[in-house]
């Protein structure tokens, strides 16, 4: 079978898999609602159990939409990072975007009244303010990593840099926590370790446009991303404005990673695992195909992770971060073991 035809089939299957996993995710939850009950809620809400209507409309559907957005955004963000740094191990979590976004949020929530940042971002615990702070935090951290990354050439060193920046940010965060009031701290903690389920319709009104804009912008950069993949000199010779492209990637990456962190908290490994799964699945390196496919695979994987997190059945659910790590970390190990370039990074490349 020719590659393009095969890829079309895969794409169709994935396209069908997305609504299927969406539906399964909506059906499953810690309160058992029978199949007929869900159908009733969706198509005949007048006669349905009002509790089930609330559970499905206010909890499960927004949660499933959030999973799609988070999976898509983090995966594309990861792809952008991998192309930018030409490093298969780059991703928003490892590069400290998530920590930077967290710090932005911490500054807004924890220092309210003290520095007046809260006022600057319009109102108490305002979600738009928090999202903006997280995105700015994400962009600044990413710029910092990108700036330092010019000094290093080793793939693994870059990750260590990201980790170190993450640690520094983490300690600034704990110092902030130490000096904050109990009320602000609780506000921050409630935000801090979120999951897909914390997102409500009102938040989606912010998250949906941000993620869609980020995805479209990334898609528009496909050509330049392809050139970048071939090397900076080649891209220059083809007339690409490298500086502009780099800046755009940092802004888009920071915004996608930061926005998701603002609403779901740090979610590990989706950003690194999905681009690799997708590249293996389609066996292509063209970003015009890669970006939509990565977004699709990311959305499906996030939904599947959310479904798995409901698996214990009955009362308990697993934290979604545990599930993404359980699936994502082995993939990272596999990448490290299978790619000669990473396994044997020379000391002075």
């Amino acid at each position: 079978m020719p590659k393009s035809k095969r890829n079309k089939y895969i794409f169709v299957i994935l396209f069908l898999l997305l609504p299927l996993s969406f539906v399964v995710d909506v059906f499953l939850g810690s309160v058992r609602i029978p199949f007929a009950g869900v159908i009733n809620v969706l198509f005949n809400p007048q006669t349905a159990n009002p509790v089930w209507i609330t559970i499905i409309n206010e909890f499960r559907i927004p949660k499933a939409i959030t999973a799609i957005l988070a999976g898509g955004a983090l995966s594309v963000c990861g792809l952008l990072m991998q192309t930018y740094f030409r490093n298969p191990l780059a991703e928003p979590y490892v590069l400290g975007i998530s920590s930077g976004a967290s710090l932005g949020v911490a500054l807004v929530i924890l220092t309210s009244e003290k520095i007046g940042l809260n006022l600057l971002f319009a109102g108490t615990y305002n979600k738009i303010g928090i999202t903006a702070a997280a995105m700015i935090g994400g962009v600044i951290t990413l710029s910092l990593v990108a700036l330092i990354a010019r000094k290093v050439s080793s793939n693994v060193t870059l990750l260590i840099l990201g980790l170190m920046i993450g640690y520094i940010i983490g300690s600034v965060e704990s110092i902030l926590k130490y000096y904050s009031t109990a009320e602000n701290l609780q506000g921050y903690v409630i935000w801090g370790m979120g999951n897909f389920g914390n997102v409500i319709w009102r938040d989606l009104a912010i998250l949906v446009p941000v993620v869609i804009a980020g995805l479209i912008a990334s898609f528009l950069l496909s050509k330049q991303l392809n050139l970048l993949l071939l090397g900076e000199n080649y891209a220059l010779s083809m007339g690409a404005n490298i500086k502009f492209v780099r800046l755009m990637i940092i802004i888009i990456g920071g915004i996608l990673g930061g926005a998701i962190t603002a609403f779901c908290g740090p979610i590990a490994f989706v950003g690194i695992a999905v681009p690799h799964i997708t590249k293996n699945l389609f066996n292509v390196y063209d970003h015009k195909i890669l970006i939509p496919s990565v977004a699709l695979v990311g959305a499906i994987l996030a939904l599947i992770c959310d479904i798995i997190s409901q698996m214990p059945g009955g009362e308990q659910t697993l934290p979604v971060n545990a599930v993404t790590s359980l699936i994502g970390a082995p993939i990272v190990i596999w990448i490290i073991l299978s790619q000669r370039k990473i396994k044997h990074t020379p000391v002075d490349e």
């Binding site: 939850g29 309160v31 509790v51 609330t54 559970i55 909890f59 389920g197 009362e315």
Partner: peptide, 10 residues
């Protein structure tokens, strides 16, 4: 008891 929101709502 560690519950999910939907369980409490239920």
């Amino acid at each position: 008891l560690k519950l999910n929101y939907e369980q409490v709502l239920d």
